[in-house]
Design a protein around this nucleic acid. Structure first.
Length: 472
RNA sequence: GGCGACGUAGCCAAGUGGUAAGGCGGGGGUCUGCAAAACCCCUAUUCAGCGGUUCGAAUCCGCUCGUCGCCUCCA
């Protein structure tokens, strides 16, 4: 397998140190509902994790929650809800979103507020080694003590100082020194520390948690491209300075960012579409397939037109997925070449677009085989296995169309519908086509379409199969 | 200003030296009472523009135009 590494800027051979892959992905700061950009990132890393497992690795996957920070404090103060409760509410929402998107839970979800002792231990070590210093209850990392600082984001201290936006001042030795520990301000949540009451800075949590749960060297560390600098750069500086072990991370992975119109989707700008909103319009499968239809390092732009198009594509995969396997003595179709294409694509830096292309081709092969009466069982199993690696469920009845709550002359429409299907079938047998079509027209009021096969009548709502009625 | 990414058909999107995957849409056809679903065929002589290297470039180099990201909280 080859994986692109942000640190080296090129694809490198992937081989974990042992059969368990140590994987860390930066999680969210739970102060607002998660948006589609988060969904994109976590769908991507879930798929990477899933593929590694498919390839026979065990994966220990750690994802943090930054459950204390400036914005959480600000929101808590506005709403009068304690920071812990505020964060807890959004964490629960986050899990609900992730579950709906069929994103497998991480092995452990450590929270910043529960890992303070480990952070203090790391900060103390950094001070002892001369990599950090305390000023008035704050502790800062001394960037000039790390000759490698800037290696991940490919910049230099001089280059960054040339930028116009560096603020000079405060008590820092160097403008780019960053906070490891922040002295408490009145009314803020605080924890005891050797430097007085305060709270951790943003970057230190990830160093502390990864060290605690995965050790000194991680195989994979992931996150959005917007985390490359300063967050991940600072993590490297802290971790390598503390442990003296390099590399801290063997493969740095960064996903491209989601755009909404002209701008990045971002909580702080308010330009966003929440995951819940998106899920009210599109199926989880469509959202996953949409995200995975472009390479994970490329940016994407949100578009209703494209998501609607993806929904149609999902429908084709779903129709194939839900074919009945009939026992057949006929020749079986061979799915091996499609499986190989899938693996070849995914082995090359997780080439999901080509992998998906192989799955669409396999779907066509299966449908064709099904039409020709060939044995499709094995190929269908391969199809289900590989779509499953991408986290697609492709199941039938997970929707509740308006008809489910409708009434016909006082009776629930669902009850009436079955009799209509029977009525229409009898009219068709009698070749009374006009009257049969009149019955079919009744379904239009709920956007239901009918599909006749030799054995059953299928009712679809917006392309999705909703009910199947066996023909007598 | 510094660093980086990108610009491929109506839309989305692969392809990084050997002659353009896949999806959506569109057109035609098969099947069907008609549909639906499925299947078959067609839909970029061309890869932002201009030069250059090469037997050969969407792929390498240079310049121009355009879009976006990071440099500040951010997946």
């Amino acid at each position: 397998m080859k994986i692109y590494n942000t640190l080296s800027g090129r694809k490198e051979d992937f081989a974990p140190r042992n059969d368990t892959v140590k994987m860390y992905v930066c999680g969210v700061t739970p102060y607002a509902p998660s948006h589609l950009g988060h969904a994109m990132s976590y769908i991507i890393f879930d798929t990477i994790r899933s593929y590694l497992e498919f390839r026979g690795y065990k994966v220990k996957y750690i994802q943090n929650f930054t459950d204390i920070d400036d914005k959480i404090i600000a929101r808590a103060n506005e709403s009068g809800i304690p920071t812990h409760d505020l964060a807890q509410g959004f964490i629960e929402q986050y899990f609900a979103n992730m579950d709906t998107l069929n994103i497998k839970r991480a092995t452990i979800y450590p929270r910043a507020t529960e890992e303070i002792p480990k952070m203090i231990e790391v900060i103390e070590g950094l001070i002892q080694k001369g990599h950090a210093y305390e000023v008035g209850g704050d502790v800062y990392f001394r960037v000039q003590s790390d000759p490698d600082y800037g290696k991940l984001s490919h910049r230099t201290l001089d280059g960054m100082m040339a930028g116009a936006r560096v603020e000079i001042g405060e008590a820092k030795e160097h403008p780019l020194d960053f906070a490891l520990w922040k002295a408490a301000k009145p009314g803020e949540p605080q924890w005891h520390s050797p430097w007085g009451p305060g709270r951790p800075g943003w970057h230190i949590e990830c160093s502390a948690m990864s060290l605690k749960y995965l050790g000194e060297t991680l195989d994979i560390h992931g996150g959005g491209q917007d985390l490359t600098f300063p967050h991940h750069e600072n993590e490297i500086a802290q971790s390598e300075s503390f442990t003296g072990v390099k590399p801290f991370v063997r493969h740095w992975l960064h996903n491209g960012l989601l755009q909404l119109g002209e701008e990045k989707m971002s909580k702080s700008t308010g330009k966003l579409i929440t995951i819940s909103e998106a899920l009210s319009k599109y199926s989880p499968d469509a959202l996953r397939l949409w995200v995975l239809s472009s390479h994970y390092r490329s940016p994407m732009t949100y578009s209703d037109e494209n998501l609607a198009a993806t929904e149609k594509g999902v429908e084709r995969l779903r129709n194939t997925n839900n074919l009945d396997i009939k026992e057949s003595a006929a020749t079986a179709i061979d799915s091996q070449t499609y499986r190989e294409r899938f693996i070849e694509a995914m082995d090359d830096d997780f080439g999901t677009p080509q992998a998906i292309a192989a799955l669409f081709d396999l779907a066509r092969e299966i449908n064709r085989g099904n039409d020709e009466g060939l044995h499709i069982g094995e190929a269908l199993n391969t199809f289900r296995e590989l779509t499953g690696v991408l986290g697609l469920k492709l199941s039938d009845v997970t929707i509740s169309p308006p008809v489910a709550e409708a009434f016909v002359e006082g009776l629930p429409a669902e009850v009436v519908i079955e009799s209509w299907v029977k009525e229409r079938e009898e009219l068709r047998k009698a070749k009374q086509w006009n009257r049969a079509d009149d019955v079919r027209d009744r379904f239009k009021q709920w956007d239901l379409t009918l599909e006749d096969t030799s054995q059953e009548t299928i009712l679809r709502y917006k392309g999705r199969i909703w009910r199947r009625y066996k023909k007598p």
